[in-house]
């Protein structure tokens, strides 16, 4: 699987070089397509690791909501990092910073219920 990803990456770099000096305005789409292909190649690995984490979580008795929130935050982090790097490659790094800001805010919103839950538990203990 790793070799397949490396192969796709090399092919994209070569074709990016070719398209860049032949047709600069189409060269933005190549990294996007490569990112999508690489994720689809990795998707079964990611699914397997998520399932193994889920079995560990069930054994340890932590409630499902926390794990769901953690998973969501990981997903948001990945999407934000993917599109931020894409915008940086395309040359507009200001836009990348905006996307990172949006990602941080979304993560904060997703994590807020968990934090309030923990604070309530601590409050009850007092």
């Amino acid at each position: 699987m790793l070799l397949k990803v490396i192969g796709v990456a090399f092919v994209t770099v070569v074709s990016y070089g070719v398209v860049k000096n032949v047709k600069p305005d189409l060269s933005v789409f190549l990294p996007m397509a490569a990112g999508a292909i690489i994720l689809i190649l990795l998707s079964d690995g990611i699914i397997r690791s998520i399932d193994s984490f889920r079995t560990i979580i069930e054994k340890s008795g932590v409630d499902e909501r926390a794990y769901g929130a953690v998973l969501k935050i990981v997903g948001i982090g990945y999407i934000t990092e993917f599109s931020a790097n894409l915008c940086e490659d395309a040359g507009c790094s200001a836009l990348a910073k905006k996307i990172e800001l949006a990602g941080k805010i979304t993560v904060l919103l997703t994590a807020m219920p968990i934090v309030t839950g923990v604070i309530d538990v601590i409050g009850d203990l007092m």
């Binding site: 789409f29 996007m32 397509a33 999508a36 997903g75 948001i76």
Partner: peptide, 26 residues
């Protein structure tokens, strides 16, 4: 050409975000 490639890539990104959404149940 730009429009053709754009539609191609946007379709792919649609599937890409779909798989991500399914995987991390965002």
């Amino acid at each position: 050409a730009l429009v053709i490639v754009l539609s191609l890539v946007v379709n792919m990104l649609g599937d890409f975000f779909g798989t991500l959404k399914a995987m991390f149940n965002l």
